[in-house]
């Protein structure tokens, strides 16, 4: 005997019911697929354009392509061409292609210093021609913090080396400057003795003109020698100082150049830094609030000791 009677009223019109159910399910699936497709721009018309980069670093399949901050497409794929350059295929929504002209530039930038990489395309000028399907646009990579730092390091290195050299040159005990100063000092030290001798000579003047005259002659000779020596030294200093000054000037120029570079880099980075710090602070404060709340909650609070102030332990043998 069958378990279900064929005349069971629950099965009257079962085919229609199943048919309706299946139809509803199929419609539902189709609607869902359509919604997902619309959401994912599957049905949007797209144009393929290319850009050529020296390196694929930071560019991945799916990397967003933006124009004036709006997402207009993505990187579809990237591969090495015959010249070992990276050819990046961009899939751009056709409706946005009107702003991409032959003079448009593409740049790889970061959204914030720690954000994702994004390819930003600049709108072209009205005079330039439209970029067609499979067209190529120019590409440049903005420098990352690491690259800027490396560049600054390269710029600073020679300047610092120059300064070090100059300081070393000035400080060298056997160098011209120190020797010149030493000679000057010795010469200057000799002057009081000369003066003393002059004084004693004048005091002895009464003793005899002849003797005095001889002494004066000797003294004058000595003074002349001292003056000649000082003159020679002064000439040497005159000769050396311009060279030193020239080298110092060059170093200062180098430093100025480097400072300008630093200024530029800072200006480039500066607008983003305050907001980053602010965001960082907000995040830290939020995290602290959460941690504080957790700390106050049972049973966590049972394991956390209330902080108390302690005197620093001082050992009797320290």
């Amino acid at each position: 005997m069958g378990l279900i009677k064929e005349t069971d009223e629950r099965f009257i019109g079962i085919e229609k019911k199943i048919g309706l159910f299946v139809a509803a399910a199929v419609i539902g699936i189709l609607v869902a697929v359509a919604a997902v497709g619309l959401q994912s721009d599957i049905f949007t018309s797209k144009t393929r354009i290319y850009l050529i980069a020296d390196s694929g670093q930071g560019i991945n399949e799916g990397t967003a392509v933006k124009l004036s901050g709006f997402k207009i497409g993505k990187v579809k794929r990237l591969y090495l061409d015959d010249a070992a350059k990276v050819k990046v295929e961009l899939s751009i929504k056709t409706k946005y292609m009107r702003w991409i002209r032959t003079d448009s530039d593409a740049r790889l930038i970061k959204e914030g210093f720690i954000g994702d990489s994004v390819i930003e395309i600049t709108p072209g000028s009205a005079k330039a021609k439209d970029v067609r399907e499979d067209g190529i646009i120019a590409f440049e990579r903005t420098r990352g913090l690491g690259e800027i730092a490396a560049e600054l390091k390269d710029e600073l290195k020679p300047a610092l080396s120059d300064i070090k050299q100059i300081v070393g040159y000035i400080n060298d005990p056997q160098g011209d400057v120190r020797q010149t100063l030493k000679s000057l000092r010795i010469a200057a030290e000799g002057l009081p003795a000369t003066k003393q001798r002059l004084d004693s000579l004048l005091a002895d003047a009464d003793k005899g003109v002849n003797t005095s005259a001889k002494k004066i002659d000797a003294l004058l000779d000595s003074a002349k020698q001292t003056i000649n020596s000082v003159d020679g030294l002064a000439k040497k200093v005159d000769k050396d100082i311009p060279a030193i000054l020239e080298r110092a000037n060059k170093s200062v120029e180098n430093i100025q150049k480097t400072t300008e570079e630093i200024k530029k880099a800072t200006e480039q980075a500066a607008p983003q830094i305050p907001s980053m710090i602010e965001k960082g602070n907000d995040i830290a404060e939020g995290a602290k609030e959460v941690v504080d709340s957790v700390k106050k909650t049972w049973p966590v609070r049972l394991f956390i000791k209330t902080p108390e102030e302690k005197t620093l332990e001082v050992d009797s043998y320290e």
């Binding site: 106050k296 049972w298 902080p307 102030e309």
Partner: peptide
Amino acid sequence: GCGGYKEPTLSDTQLKAAEFNQRAE
């Protein structure tokens, strides 16, 4: 009973001072 918020024995200012003291150590 256990989960209710328990009043800390130290004020926020004292807690801050204690934190500085512990970090110093």
